[in-house]
Design a protein around this nucleic acid. Structure first.
Length: 246
DNA sequence: AAACAGCGCAACCGCAGAAGG
DNA sequence: ACCTTCTGCGGTTGCGCTGTT
């Protein structure tokens, strides 16, 4: 049987989301979660296909999304991870809490690709493979990543994603900010009507919201995002690091 | 001030894999 | 074991904004 087109039904809306649609979607997901994206728009009263709703939610409306410019550290991280993993945007996004694969993909294509092209050294992944004492940077060329603890975020953080309080200051956003979102959860929604958010999260207690999305909940709890989310990543990191060692 | 070009970002499309019956 | 449905992912597109001429 041939798969039905995503938006086969006439009358389903496409294109940019209106504020009202956003509001309806957020309200619905907040209250009921998203056990079935396909059925969601009908239940929520949206003239969108489930796919569109899911995309809108994951790329834009999720409360744990960090908006705004990418810091230098984040960009460096993306470059290096891309060098390791290629176009596995979701995997890269898993390393950058608060960033979506779509966003990272966009940044890569618009900025970072050119940057790497003009300066291939930036993509040198060596530091990501330095998982043991024997391979410390010897102070030669130090990328921004190497100058602070974010370099260790690389793969060590997989096992112990503890928020570091000893980060050296960074010219832009602090590394902690990038990798742990203790403070950003509900504060980074300039696009959203703040009134709306306060409404949603006061009407429905946040506990209920935590049940909505496991990952969101983990973030809200406070950087406890290491578990299932990164299992796959651990595998790949192991592959890469082991491969390098051999 | 207008026209044009380039850039950035949100959204769509189609495929692949997972899950369920 | 097979089939169907659903979800997730990566590639691509299109539109609006901004800078330049």
């Amino acid at each position: 049987m041939v798969r039905a087109p995503c938006c086969e039904k006439m009358g389903l809306k496409k294109g940019p989301w209106s504020h009202e649609e956003d509001r309806v979607l957020i309200e619905y997901v907040t209250k009921h979660g998203h056990p079935n994206w396909r059925a969601l728009p009908k239940l929520a009263g949206l003239l969108r296909c489930g796919k569109s709703c899911r995309l809108r939610w994951t790329n834009y409306l999720r409360p744990d999304i960090k908006r705004g410019n990418f810091s230098k550290e984040e960009e460096d991280t993306i470059i290096k991870l891309h060098n390791l993993m290629g176009n596995r945007w979701s995997a890269i996004a898993a390393r950058l809490p608060g960033r979506t694969d779509n966003e990272i993909k966009n940044v890569w294509h618009t900025h970072l690709k050119k940057r790497v092209k003009s300066n291939p050294n930036e993509a040198n992944p060596s530091e990501f493979q330095q998982t043991s004492e024997e391979s410390k940077p010897n102070g030669t060329e130090s990328s921004p990543l190497e100058t602070d603890s974010s370099s260790q975020m690389s793969y060590n953080q997989i096992d112990s994603p503890q928020p570091s309080s000893t980060d050296t200051s960074s010219p832009t956003t602090s590394t902690n900010d990038n990798l742990c979102m203790d403070n950003m959860v509900f504060e980074n929604f300039p696009e959203m009507d703040e009134e709306f958010w306060s409404e949603v999260f006061s009407d429905d207690n946040s506990g209920e919201f935590l049940a909505v999305d496991e990952n969101v909940g983990q973030h809200l709890i406070g950087c406890g995002f290491e578990s299932s989310l990164h299992d796959d990543m651990n595998f790949w990191f192991n592959v890469y690091t082991k491969g390098e060692e051999v």
